[in-house]
Amino acid sequence: MHTQDFPQLESIERIEQGFEALGYICSTKIATAVFLAFQLRKPVLVEGPPGVGKTELAKTCAELLSVPLIRLQCYEGLDEAKALYEWKYGKQLLYTQVLKEKLGDLLHGARGLAESVERLHQFGDIFFSEDFLEPRPLLKAMQQERGAILLIDEVDKSDYEFESLLLEILSDYQISIPEIGTVKARVSPMVFLTSNNSRDISDALKRRCLHLYIPFPTVELEERIVLSRVPDIDATLRHQLVAFVHSLRELDLKKAPAISETLDWARSLLLLHAGDLEEDLVRSTLNVLLKFEDDVQNAESGLGELLRAARSTP
């Protein structure tokens, strides 16, 4: 992708503004990462706890540039047939069956095997041409005319072999298909990889990427996020609920509430017409924030204290 085609990405400030207009409030660091990824044509490896907006970042980028978002969800056992390309085996078989009759006409009058083979050679590898190629996400991303955002989601769930497969694609934006040759990207796509850190990504892959770690946001940033996503909520309530979520993250929880949970909770409170963080109300909606029974009990035991602290924050 070239700078002149996408003025939206020409400076860090413009990226921040563009994202904000689309409702994605980000820190300068995230904008810097997007800027560098674009300028240096490097993929970004995004890490961070679940729910901080890793996938959202790629989606917003695609929206900002109005290019297609091509997503590849990784899982154990993902292989090249599902990620890169596959031969349309069925179509190939069907065509051979249909063309069987034509074969007679074609070879009519040929003397001996050698001549028959000679004639067949004139047709080249018709069954292994692009017409019989089924592009999967990675190849599809290379074929886009205007470039694309390629999101390789949860790359830590895939196997090690798959990682090595990605190396060629991520450093040179090309794919080698043995029967056809090397397919180079028309316009190199912008690549985001996300990882939840369920295992270590190999150094070779990390080395090719910019490494962006998105932590939980600061209080100010999270308030701005809530403001942009749930604009109808009352300002004091917004302030209190963000403070409360932040104090929850301090607790020893199995899964700390992320931004997506904060937003869900803000929407629930809005639906329930809450004007203030009352203890009963919080108690009954706590399951929106916390997804484990242990965590809910843990939070409930000190709820009064937490709420008092959240209400009194300046």
């Binding site: 660091k29 810097t32 990462a33 890490e47 990390k206 080395r207 490494h211 962006l212 770690y213």
Partner: peptide, 18 residues
């Protein structure tokens, strides 16, 4: 600050290294 962010993005490979 920007240079700091940029170098962290390109050289660190984990939150610890960052």
């Amino acid at each position: 600050a920007r240079l700091r962010d940029g170098l962290a993005l390109s050289l660190a490979k984990s939150a610890r290294e960052e």
